[in-house]
C-alpha cells in the first residue's frame, strides 16, 4: 500500500524522479518551513501571497498542460469562491464555523458554475479555440457585473458587494478559536500547496492521469479506446476550477478583501503566463514559475514601476516564441543533461 502510494507520487508524470531530486525537494520544503523564523511577519505574509496563487497555477497546468484544454478565465472561479466566502463568512461573523461554511460554499459555488459551463462546451464537442474565448467572456462579464454592484441595494444579508471598490472586512480563516494570520497563515498556505502538488502528482500518475494525457495528445484515438473523453475533460475542468477556488479562498483570507479587478483581464492573464513561462506540462515547473514571477511583479510594482505588466506580457510573447515548452522545463532538462554527463563521466 505504502509502496503503491510512493510509486504514484514518484512516477514520471512530472519532472524530477531521481533520488537526488527528492532530496532537493525535501530540503526546499524545509527551507520554506524555516523561512518565517528568519523574517518579519510582513515579509512572511508577502511570501504567503506568492504561495496562495500556486493552486490556481497548478490548476492551469492540469487543464492546459496535461489535458490540452486552455482556459483564459479561471480567475472567474477564483473570484466566485472569494466572493461567496466573503458573503457566507461575513454574514456568520462571530460564529467560529462561519469560515468553514464559507470555504465549503465557495468551493461548491465555483464547482457549480464550472460544471454547467464545462457541460456545454465539452458535451458539444466544440473546436478547441472556443473554450479559451468563452471562458474569457465569462470572466469579463463577471467583472462587469461585480463592478456595478456599488451601493446599498447590492448587499447579501449584511455584506455589501461593493462595486469597483470591492468587498472588504472579509473574516480570516479559523478552526475553532484559532485564527490563521501572519506566520500561521504562511504555514496554512504551505501545507495546502504541498497537498495540492502531491495530490496532483498522484492523480496524474494514476490510470486517470495517463488517460487525460492521452486525450491531450489525440482525443479521437483515445475515444476509440473506449473512453468517454467528454466526461474526463469535464471532470478535469471542474477540478482545475476547484484549484482556482482554493486560491481565491486563500486570497480573501489573506487580504480580507476582494475587488472585481481580481476577475478582470489582467488578472486572467497571470495564471496563463505562469503556466506558459514555467512549462505547462510540468506541475513543478509551473509552481516554481509562479513563485518567481509573483516575486518579480511584486518587486517591480512595489517600486512603482509602471512597466510591470508590459514586462510580464513581453515575457509571455518571448516564451511562446523562443521557449515554447517553458523556461523552467528547458532549464531543468539542461541541468539533467549536465549532471548526467558528469555522472557518466565519473563512471568511466
Amino acid at each position: 500500500m505504502t509502496s503503491k502510494i510512493l510509486h504514484l507520487i514518484g512516477g514520471d508524470a512530472d519532472i524530477g524522479t531521481s533520488k537526488t531530486f527528492w532530496i532537493g525537494f525535501v530540503i526546499a520544503v524545509i527551507l520554506f518551513a524555516l523561512y518565517p523564523t528568519q523574517v518579519s511577519e510582513f515579509r512572511a505574509s508577502n511570501v504567503s501571497y506568492y504561495l496562495l496563487n500556486i493552486p490556481l497555477a497548478l490548476g492551469m497546468a492540469l487543464l492546459w498542460g496535461y489535458c490540452g484544454v486552455l482556459s483564459f478565465g479561471h480567475v472567474a472561479y477564483f473570484g466566485i469562491a472569494g466572493y461567496t466566502y466573503g458573503i457566507i463568512a461575513g454574514n456568520m461573523a462571530g460564529n467560529s464555523f462561519g469560515p468553514i461554511a464559507g470555504v465549503l460554499g465557495g468551493l461548491l459555488a465555483s464547482a457549480l458554475v464550472a460544471g454547467i459551463f464545462a457541460y456545454f462546451v465539452f458535451y458539444s464537442r466544440v473546436r478547441e479555440w472556443i473554450i479559451p474565448i468563452l471562458t474569457l467572456v465569462l470572466t469579463l462579464l463577471l467583472e462587469t457585473f461585480l463592478g456595478q454592484t456599488a451601493g446599498y441595494q447590492w448587499r447579501v444579508g449584511s455584506v455589501l458587494l461593493g462595486g469597483y471598490n470591492g468587498m472588504t472586512g472579509i473574516p480570516a480563516f479559523q478552526i475553532g478559536s484559532f485564527v490563521f494570520m501572519g506566520y500561521s497563515f504562511y504555514y496554512f498556505c504551505m501545507v495546502i500547496v504541498l497537498a495540492c502538488y502531491v495530490g496532483l502528482r498522484m492523480l496524474l500518475n494514476s490510470k486517470f492521469g495517463q488517460v487525460v494525457t492521452a486525450i491531450r495528445e489525440d482525443p479521437l484515438r483515445t475515444e476509440i479506446f473506449g473512453y468517454d473523453i467528454r466526461a474526463r475533460q469535464w471532470l478535469v475542468f471542474v477540478l482545475s476550477a476547484l484549484l482556482a477556488a482554493i486560491s481565491g479562498l486563500l486570497y480573501v483570507q489573506w487580504g480580507n478583501y476582494i475587488t472585481p479587478s481580481q476577475v478582470g483581464l489582467l488578472s486572467a492573464a497571470l495564471p496563463v503566463i505562469w503556466a506558459a513561462v514555467g512549462g505547462r506540462t510540468s506541475l513543478l515547473a509551473v509552481l516554481i514559475a509562479t513563485i518567481v514571477l509573483n516575486w518579480v511583479t511584486f518587486t517591480l510594482s512595489s517600486q512603482g514601476n509602471q512597466y510591470a505588466m508590459v514586462i510580464i506580457g513581453a515575457a509571455l510573447v518571448i516564451t511562446m516564441l523562443f521557449f515554447p515548452r517553458g523556461i523552467v522545463i528547458m532549464l531543468a532538462e539542461w541541468i539533467g543533461k549536465v549532471t548526467n554527463r558528469k555522472n557518466s563521466g565519473a563512471a568511466t
Partner: peptide, 24 residues
C-alpha cells in the same frame, strides 16, 4: 471492437510504456 487508423496514431510524444497503458 478495436480500430487502428490509416495514418498511424500512436501517441508520438508519450513513451511506449505509456502508450500501452492507455487502453483499458
Amino acid at each position: 471492437i478495436g480500430l487502428t487508423f490509416q495514418t498511424n496514431r500512436a501517441y508520438q510524444e508519450l513513451s511506449v510504456k505509456h502508450n500501452l497503458l492507455v487502453p483499458n
